[in-house]
């Protein structure tokens, strides 16, 4: 079913210099198994076309993925001309993107 990712996933994002980080987590092991397969770097870039170089880290103990979006914020918050220069709402943007989520997880 095509629904917002945020139906089952939480997220929190922020800045480290010119990089943004975006943590995404879900609340069951089944949902995590799906998330790891679905939310690849390539898929994240499709959902957030503004992303450039992206690295993904897995934290199965937290049922979470952490993405580092390199260079998204230029020379950091004080210099960036981005709409959201500290990437505070990057996670909420991702949660609003529609993806195919298996009905069993909804």
């Amino acid at each position: 079913m095509k629904v917002p990712l945020g139906t089952i996933a939480g997220a929190r994002s922020g800045d480290k210099g010119g990089d943004a980080n975006l943590g995404v987590w879900v609340r069951t092991d089944e949902a995590y198994a799906w998330l790891v397969g679905e939310l690849t770097v390539a898929r994240l870039k499709e959902l957030l076309p503004e992303a450039g170089e992206v690295v993904r880290y897995e934290l199965p103990n937290l049922r979470a993925l952490n993405f580092v979006l390199h260079g998204l914020l230029g020379d950091g918050v004080a210099s960036s001309t981005r709409f959201d220069p500290q990437a505070k709402a990057l996670g909420e943007w991702l949660r609003s993107r529609h993806v195919d989520i298996p009905e069993a997880l909804l």
Partner: peptide
Amino acid sequence: TAQLLYEIGD
């Protein structure tokens, strides 16, 4: 969990 994921990398 949300806060653990804030501003981390590796």
